[in-house]
């Protein structure tokens, strides 16, 4: 049988990889991909906790469903922003989008 810690460590690794992608990739679409990886890690955690600790309580699954919805929303809005920015500046490089600079 697989212990809970395996899932948790896997999810941690996936989350860290996603985090690295978010923090270091130049391309905005790639950053979104990193976010997807992080959200997947969260989902793995949620379902693992549900299965191992409280299978009768549906809270874990419900939250996983909501994370799905949030992920879908995030991708929709994020990609729309990417396309909108690309249309204006002919670029999706995150480090070129620095209008918020001092």
């Amino acid at each position: 049988m697989i212990p809970l810690s395996w899932y948790l460590i896997f999810a941690a690794a996936l989350f860290s990889i996603g985090l690295f992608g978010v923090l270091s990739r130049k391309n905005a679409v790639a950053i979104l991909m990193g976010v997807e990886l992080m959200l997947n890690a969260v989902n793995v955690n949620l379902l693992a906790f549900w299965r191992y600790l409280a299978p009768e309580n549906m809270a874990g699954q419900v939250f996983a469903v909501i994370v799905f919805a949030v992920a879908a929303s995030e991708v929709a809005v994020g990609l729309a922003l990417v396309i909108s920015v690309y249309r204006r500046r002919q670029s999706v490089q995150a480090d070129e989008i620095n209008l918020l600079k001092y």
């Binding site: 049988m1 460590i9 985090l19 923090l23």
Partner: peptide
Amino acid sequence: WPIAAVIALLVFGLIVFLVQVWDRAASLP
């Protein structure tokens, strides 16, 4: 990116550490 890598490893290490010290981490389904 090197800083990002360090941070990602830091987060990973932190979580692994927490999993290690948590007594129910080894529980079976």
